[in-house]
């Protein structure tokens, strides 16, 4: 049994130290993932807190045997999707905000991105939201395709098909043709 599995079992018995362990262990990973979907530090922070509060409330009824990392990603994802749905009314607002931001280049100066990062960002923008999320999860968060299927509620084969199409697009953008 791995340490995280052991802590999971302790969490089920109501051990708050186990919650602390899991929170600290996965904090950065979950943060990165949430940030790719929300692009807002304050909202990411809020969603992470909600995710772990929910885990704590449900501690007595958590599944006995589970892969911890994908389970946490999934819990966080449900929260984020709920949030995005509820804030749909405000999304017009957000959109405007982004346009205003892009007009003042000073803001971006801080994040001096290298050329390759810009190239990658440009290539990523061509992907559908589902493709983007799969690529981020697999190559950024290092989650296996089999587990991505569970997190996103998709069939394994559809995950692979989406990934295949996304990777083909990215290859054409990123690798020079022979």
């Amino acid at each position: 049994m791995s340490e995280t599995d052991r802590q999971w079992q302790l969490l089920r018995t109501g051990d708050q130290k186990a919650l602390a362990y899991l929170f600290k262990h996965y904090y950065r990973d979950l943060y990165q993932y949430a940030f790719t979907m929300l692009s807002d530090h304050a909202v990411v922070q809020d969603q992470l807190q909600k995710c772990f509060l929910k885990l704590w409330e449900k501690r007595a009824t958590l599944p006995l045997s589970v892969k911890v990392k994908p389970y946490l990603f999934q819990t966080l994802r449900f929260g984020i999707i709920d949030y995005l749905r509820q804030s749909k009314a405000h999304s017009q607002h957000l959109l405007n905000l982004q346009i205003v931001q892009s007009r003042s280049p000073d803001e971006y100066e801080q994040e001096r991105k290298t050329q390759t990062e810009e190239k990658l960002q440009a290539a990523i923008q061509q992907l559908s939201p589902v493709q983007k999320e799969i690529i981020y999860l697999r190559f950024y968060n290092k989650v296996a395709y089999t587990e991505i299927a569970g997190i996103m509620g998709m069939k394994y084969q559809s995950v692979r098909n989406s990934a295949y199409r996304a990777l083909k697009k990215l290859r054409i953008q990123l690798l020079p043709e022979k």
């Binding site: 708050q16 929170f23 950065r28 922070q45």
Partner: peptide, 28 residues
Amino acid sequence: LMLQELHFQDVTPEIATDAAWQKLQQQL
């Protein structure tokens, strides 16, 4: 080579791990 290109820039959380946990603990 593709894998190297797919190297995403890390986002640094605005609140460090321990501080974030303390915040959560207060809520608990």
